[in-house]
Design a protein around this nucleic acid. Structure first.
Length: 114
DNA sequence: AAGTTGACGGATG
DNA sequence: TCATCCGCCAACT
């Protein structure tokens, strides 16, 4: 119960909630859209904090955030990587032989509507 | 109150 | 394409 104390983190979550099913965004991209350009790490910290609480309860699709290489970032939560990959595959996202997502295909790009 | 920790990204060679 | 270096915010102890 401590993550959303920060208004900064709340802004991050708000952006993540806008990522559509079947698409992904990078940490840097989320940071930029949340109004914190060049603070990709901040997004990572915010999502890490989320994980300690229940992300699903907040409707924050944290699994749709990957690093700039299109890979799932390693984390401390045991098995978290696999959970994220499975969740993304369930949304129809494919991984290549090196475990990377082709951002050119799956990266979320805001349309003219929003 | 100062130090530690933690889901990153761009530049460089 | 890969390895290294460095920048930098918030929560916790």
């Amino acid at each position: 119960m401590s993550a959303e104390r920060s208004d900064t983190y709340r802004r991050v979550y708000a952006v993540v909630r806008r990522i559509p099913r079947g698409r992904v965004a990078t940490y840097g991209q989320v940071a930029r859209l949340a109004g914190f350009p060049r603070h990709a790490r901040l997004v990572g910290y915010a999502l890490h904090s989320l994980n300690e609480e229940r992300a699903a309860d907040r409707n924050v699709p944290w699994q749709r955030v990957v690093n700039a290489k299109g890979e799932i970032s390693p984390r401390t939560w045991p098995g978290g990587d696999e959970v994220q990959r499975a969740a993304l595959e369930e949304e129809g996202i494919e991984f290549d032989g090196r475990g990377r997502i082709r951002l050119a295909v799956y990266q979320w790009r805001r349309g003219a509507h929003g």
